[in-house]
């Protein structure tokens, strides 16, 4: 078991463990922190797969911007473990079971997927230069169109967020 494998299993366990932490911890703040940790683990996986740029973006955008926004909101509302309403045990159990069944069903369906091993060599496609090239040639239309999305989101902030 080389360093690569050790890193893989470490990051996998960390991602799954922190993800469970997100849904199980009672305090919303620790949920957020667990989620950030999950994102870090996922970024680690990105680096393992030579997607360096995405790994950085993931941390900057998700952990850095989006999750901070979440934290802001949670702190603004002053939510903590005491105010957090808890669902009934039975319902939680039902949630776990149905999620688990979904997992098992997909697992059962996909167990025969042909095995393809990911090469450990660095192909360089995850570098910012390559991605930029693809983004601004092949994907230029969706890139431009997504501006409409942001305009809508902006309007949303105005329409919904502003006090009348």
């Amino acid at each position: 078991m080389g360093l690569y494998e050790i890193l893989f299993w470490f990051l996998t366990v960390m991602a799954l463990g922190c993800a469970l932490g997100v849904i199980l911890s009672r305090n919303p703040i620790s949920s957020v922190l667990f989620l950030i940790a999950t994102f870090f683990a996922i970024s680690g996986h990105y680096i393992l797969m030579n997607a360096q740029f995405l790994a950085i973006v993931n941390i900057i955008v998700y952990a850095g911007a989006i999750m901070v926004l979440f934290l802001f909101v949670i702190m603004l509302m002053n939510l903590n473990a005491d105010t957090e309403p808890q669902k009934n045990r039975l319902i939680q159990l039902a949630g776990v079971i149905s999620g688990g069944i979904l997992f098992l069903v997909i697992l059962g369906a996909l167990r025969n997927v042909p095995v393809a091993s990911l090469e450990r060599t660095n192909t360089g496609i995850g570098l910012i230069k390559n991605l930029g090239k693809v983004l601004f040639t092949q994907f230029v239309l969706p890139f431009e169109i997504s501006s409409v999305l942001f305009l809508s989101a902006m309007i949303g902030a105005i329409v919904i967020g502003r006090k009348e």
Binding site: K87, N88, A94, S98, L102, V105, I106, A109
Partner: peptide
């Protein structure tokens, strides 16, 4: 409690429905 969870129970129905249809579709 489950049913008055509204959004939660709606998603619950969605997930259950999905599971059943997946079973139908896959197997």
């Amino acid at each position: 409690l489950m049913q008055s969870g509204q959004v939660g129970s709606y998603i619950f129905v969605m997930v259950i429905g999905m599971v059943l249809l997946f079973i139908l579709g896959f197997f």
